[in-house]
Design a protein around this nucleic acid. Structure first.
Lengths: 360, 360
DNA sequence: TTGAAAGCGCTAACAT
DNA sequence: ATGTTAGCGCTTTCAA
């Protein structure tokens, strides 16, 4: 239809300027809405642009202005609904503010994260949101700071870094929910997480993940508050893939000292743990109580529906993007930082253990 | 630690060249690994770059080369695990080939899609992968073609567009699975989808989504093959949000002409349908049989586990990225296009309807 | 308000 | 192998 079906070279401001019979500078001003342009010139330029089907080259634009209107997002696993939802929160806010998102997946590998951050910086993103794979190895994040570009941490804190962080506080909710299990009569409470560690877990060891640290601390404190020792043998980190998690679940549930309750660290872990419990022919909560982090829709469909720790994940994503964009635009942090709180949603997967022994 | 803690201006090739005492061109060649550079110069340049902590400006690089090593991905809803998984397939392949991904969400709005495509083109991405919100409104996709940049369609076909498309064929699996329901004795088979349409569904109407068209066609053909008319009153499009889907489910299951089997068009729909069935106090499959598209882990955890149509979604994402990158690199399509096939996974959610009336 | 000209940081063409 | 000089397409001085 269109008179012009050429495809090779893109139309540039120079082309538009020629067509509109004005200087390149005036054409650029009209097209970019800056500087002073007379009504007459503006109209001619816009008409010419329309006619020629002009499209600005955002790369060239970014080169001059130094702004790319793009933010980089680095997460461990976009396939995990936890991050999927958070990412959605980020992109929704970004779009609303005229920013775009470059997404990079790290598979929770710090090496990949270092590379991702480097690439994004090279691409001159205006800012970065990172869910750090490690709360300890953070030199590359420190470099972001030094590059002068805004950085916001998502979901996890990073030690010793002076960086704005948007994460749900896990300490209190972990304490509270462990109390709940203890008060239901449980003493053998297991915790399963895929967090990778060099060494096997021992009480009080330093962990790579602030999230898991806070949860474990909460659990320990809850036991201590009852004057009980926390059974560290039931903490299973490095739980690995689905198959491996199922195996671990089976182990936890066997022997005289079996766990009577299991806490799954995230939705992916939960899926495998519940599957293993069902395969064992055990019943929730009669044979084993179950509690998990994150409230996904499917947790209401099992029999019984699962008791969960619900986190405002979408809101966390929104908050991170809002904070980053505020930094990019050079505005100061508002005094009112509304906290992101998790809460315990009681459904049917926790009850008293089979053989109740109350010590209080 | 580092001697240099300045942050303002970025280090450029010129700086490195000065430090290494060579021309800008030689420095650039050494840093970019192109042209001819002596061993001596290369070493001095690299050392200087290291010393100054030089980082290339990819924007500037892209301006000259015309390649951004970035592909744009446009999907309707990243939060939907279907697209989450496909996106993972895309990013995995992209990373392996040295490409990065800019992701844009459209909420299945064509207007947002048009905008997204425009923006990505302006950003000079090397190519685009789009899951078109509409198989009919495709002028903007046509424009991508005219811009000369590679385009691959994901998950859905677009009418009349000569574009490489990577999608699972739904016609056969829909036919087969409907046959399965029919042979189990069902006649009142409902189909629930969130697809938005202007008008209510009537048999044979043109739909915006090739996916849904193919499924509906398959269902209709299966009925016809049995010499039965397909009950179009049980096709519920525009099912909307979770609340609305629950309402629709209740309607479908009431009255003398109630559905005896329900097919959910995707995982999100399925969640709400199953929830509604449970809220009604009905049992699957005794009171109503259930079949859904996509095989997610949670479908194995319900009681009974759900019979699903499994699609190679991750592989589809990989195939789309592979095809796009092939196009970008100017290689021709291989003769061997292995097909992406869905398959019916029989679990426990389909049985004979309560009041069986066999007509064969 | 306008235009000429100088960049942004890099690659590419052309000499040498 | 090296350096010089143009660009890429845009924004930004700086004069006029």
């Amino acid at each position: 239809m269109s008179s012009n079906t050429s495809r090779r070279r893109d139309i540039t401001v120079a082309d538009v300027a020629r067509e509109a019979q004005v200087s390149k500078a005036q054409a650029a001003r009209a097209l970019g809405n800056y500087g002073a342009v007379s009504q007459d010139v503006r109209e001619r330029v816009l008409a010419a642009a329309e006619e020629l089907d002009y499209r600005p080259n955002e790369l060239a634009r970014s080169m001059n202005t130094g702004k790319s209107h793009t933010i980089g997002v680095v997460v461990g696993d976009i396939e995990n609904p936890h991050f999927g939802l958070a990412t959605r929160g980020i992109t929704d806010i970004a779009k609303k503010s005229g920013f775009h998102v470059i997404l990079i997946n790290t598979d929770e590998e710090t090496a990949a994260e270092v590379e991702a951050v480097r690439v994004l910086l090279d691409k001159r993103v205006d800012g970065l949101i990172v869910a750090p794979a490690s709360s300890v190895e953070t030199q590359h994040l420190q470099q972001v700071r030094e590059s002068g570009r805004p950085l916001v941490l998502l979901d996890r804190k990073a030690g010793g870094l002076d960086v704005e962080t948007v994460a749900v506080d896990m300490a209190d909710i972990s304490y509270d929910s462990t109390r709940y299990l203890l008060e239901s009569g449980h003493r053998r409470i297991a915790f399963v997480s895929t967090l990778k560690t060099e060494e096997p877990y021992v009480a009080g060891m330093e962990l790579d993940s602030s999230q898991i640290s806070e949860r474990l601390d909460g659990i320990t404190r809850a036991f201590e508050a009852q004057g009980l020792p926390h059974p560290a043998d039931l903490v299973r980190l490095n739980s690995g893939d689905a198959e491996s998690i199922r195996k671990i679940t089976v182990e936890l549930l066997q022997g005289p000292d079996a766990a009577t309750a299991i806490i799954a660290s995230d939705g992916l872990v939960a899926l495998s743990v519940v599957e293993a419990i069902q395969e064992l022919g055990l019943s929730i909560p009669d044979d084993v109580s179950f509690l998990m982090y994150d409230d996904f829709a499917w947790t209401r469909l099992t029999t019984p529906p699962l008791t969960v720790i619900s986190q405002p994940v979408y809101e966390m994503g929104m908050a991170a993007a809002t904070a980053l964009i505020r930094q990019i635009e050079g505005r100061k942090a508002p005094a009112t930082a509304e906290p992101l709180n998790a809460r315990l949603v009681l459904r049917g997967s926790v009850s008293a253990p089979r053989a109740v022994e109350i010590y209080n």
